[in-house]
Amino acid sequence: MHPAPSVILFTTLSGLGFGLLFWLGVDSTPPTGWGAFAFFFIAHALAVGGLIASTFHLGHPERAWRALSQWRSSWLSREGICAISALVVSGAYGAALIFLGQAPGWLGWLGALLSLLTVYTTAMIYTQLATIPRWNTALTPVLFLGLSLSGGALLSGRVAIVSGLLGVAGLVQLAWWLRGDRAFAASGSTLGTATGLGDRGEVRSFAPPHTAPNYLMREFVFVIGRKHALKLRVIAVFLMVILPIGLLMTPFSHVLAVLAVLSHIAGVAVSRWLFFAQAEHVVGLYYGLR
């Protein structure tokens, strides 16, 4: 799959923002006043910034409001509804903490739940696609939720649990990669099943429909990313999990905490880049490409 920067930015930043909103919502002693302003501003900036980035790849962003209508069948529509609800509810919760110095706990929990649902629905947009075997697994939402929760814990300074959460997210990431590398072969789709000619012999692409690449090949066949995939995986896990845990083990300082957060964001972005760049769509079979 073509790794569109807008979608990588969106899933990375929004995942982190909604993860932070979750931890702010379930906090029994939430920050108030300016402290609350800082936390909620960062969370909303990340979540909203990501959502805005995601509209950059749309052909007609001015019609984006229509995407809220098909929640009965479409995960993308559900994601839009969850994202707006989560932002409104935790926005109200944050505003109450900032201006009134207190807020009802249930409002925080509701915002937290909606934030998690948003990350889950984002993941389900990819998980539902049987055409991309690497994504088509229950491990995908686990991975997105794991990274969102650990990133949110890191941002909200939950030092007690963040190392554990990062470790778990790292293990899920490894499991997701291991499964993903075998997923296309396990899906059973080949050029033989794609053309229905497989039982007659070995099918190979003899001549493509056009001499130049087309939209389908640009969007679905992206080979460049796979060359350095292993190195990029090592870099992703190091930045996303290992370096932040290492930095958290040192005596606390704001500089190192910011470094840990930036390293985590960079690691998640690399992982997300691989998420798209390594994903193979079955339509590539028709072109003799993967």
Binding site: M1, H57, L58, G59, H60, P61, R63, A64, R66, A67, L76, I125, Q128, L129, A130, T131, I132, S189, A194, Y215, L216, E219, F220, H281, V282, V283, Y286
Partner: peptide
């Protein structure tokens, strides 16, 4: 249509 492209992702046949 907002041109999000998700339907093209969902179609196995291009």
């Amino acid at each position: 249509c907002i041109g999000c492209g998700l339907c093209a992702w969902a179609c196995p046949y291009g």
